[in-house]
Design a protein around this nucleic acid. Structure first.
Lengths: 239, 239
DNA sequence: CGCGACTTTGAAACCTGTCAACTCCGGTGG
DNA sequence: CCACCGGAGTTGACAGGTTTCAAAGTCGCG
């Protein structure tokens, strides 16, 4: 499990937010300054829609604080949570860079503040700035790889496998406590499970002594080794 | 349904193959010439492994003729078919561009010929060539969008929805005949179904008069309207 | 306090995977 | 030429995991 590094304070400068973002890691100060100069601040109250799919993309968003829920809406009203974006993560990058309509919706799962780089200014900069292009290109490649893994998880793992993998990949503090981001129903949906199944799996893990519930939506990992083992395999309970 | 455009002859020059490829659409002649100069020919007999996941990426592949199966292998031996690549399609682009290990395996589902652009030469070129960078950047963005759709399909649709969508999106000739690419078991696996379920769904569609089987692995669409309707919705058989 | 959203829990229904048998087809070798 | 074989595809019966439905419990908030 990853050890949570910094605990971020809310008021950060645009430059700090952009620097904290994985997608822009590798840019030098000059490059970042260019992006910072284009940045626009956005704030969203909990539950507020940020954008709707099929619309033109307003820009590339970097989360400063809070939690953003990116989800895809099917014609019949079903929705699937693609990402829960916390501080330092980006969303709508793909549409902003590719220059097409938004493939998904987003709203604020918790009160959230973002830095937005408008699509047109980003495009202008991309036309001139070779280094930025390359940086985003490799960033995008990582992004695809991430999706391939997500796809594999949903396709090849059963409920237990998906949940344990989520826990195993989640950041935790030094004592092994994991703060679940967002509501359980959103997490469950992201794993393509119902909240009921999610709940049941968690209980089974607790009964087996692998985890314990703390109050306040946090989970304490007791048997990290078994958790790893469970998250490593998939389907078939054999062996 | 898309109308199949050209039927390609096998022997094409490297330049023609690269031009036919969606990822490189938008490049001018000079740019394409640069890529062509780096190109290496590869041929694979049916069933031959092309590469194995976790290896270093040899290069970016463009399919000239035949069919390539790209799939991910889980630790327990299960596999999931990510793509069936026909003529004009690329694979291993992500790893070649991002410069990391291959996230998936590939083999020849049918005898196949490919044009390969070696990773190191591609990287060299990307370092210098701004236009190529931009082109691949937007290409990559489309690629991500494609994955989001694939994810949505598998997450939000039931077996009937996935199969009808496959049929609806498949290229057909003017009379509405669809040539299924590759073996049914591979197609089924790509949709995250077993071949048994795939077969049953197809039969149900035939019983309802939506499609008819021709011999020779091809399908004749009778009621395109109903097919569209079925492919548009998901889960729940209601209405 | 009381409403509403989230979570938990149980029972039943459903879809899909698994297992097994059978057919069909192409290739091999006697 | 034909018997034999193995892989792909079809079909049926069955089991199992998840969803669905329903109800009760919990938490936060006006």
């Amino acid at each position: 499990m990853n050890i949570q590094s910094r605990s971020q304070k809310s008021p950060r400068t645009d430059e700090e937010v952009i620097r904290s973002c994985g997608l822009f890691r590798g840019l030098d100060d000059t490059q970042r300054a260019v992006l910072t100069s284009m940045a626009v601040r956005k704030r969203f109250k909990q539950g507020t829609p940020i954008f709707v799919q099929e619309e033109a993309c307003p820009g590339l968003f970097v989360v400063d604080h809070g939690l953003v829920r990116v989800f895809r809406l099917a014609p019949n009203g079903q929705q699937h949570v693609l990402h829960l974006c916390g501080p330092g993560q980006t969303f709508a990058e793909v549409a902003a860079i590719g220059g097409f309509a938004l493939p998904a919706c987003a709203d604020a799962a918790q009160p959230a503040g973002c830095v937005m780089i408008p699509t047109d200014r980003l495009q202008q900069e991309l036309a001139l700035n070779h280094q930025l292009c390359r940086q985003l290109l490799t960033g995008m490649a990582f992004w695809v790889r991430h999706f391939v893994q997500l796809l594999e998880d949903i396709a090849l793992r059963d409920a237990m496998g998906r949940v344990t993998r989520l826990l195993y990949d989640s950041p935790c503090d030094a004592s092994g406590r994991i703060q679940l981001p967002g509501a359980k129903k959103d997490l469950a949906n992201h794993l393509n499970l119902t909240s009921e199944t999610f709940s049941r799996v968690l209980r089974r893990l607790a009964e087996q002594g692998v985890i314990e519930f703390d109050q306040d939506r946090s989970v304490h990992v007791i048997d990290a080794q078994q958790l790893e083992q469970l998250s490593g395999q998939s389907q078939n309970t054999d062996q």
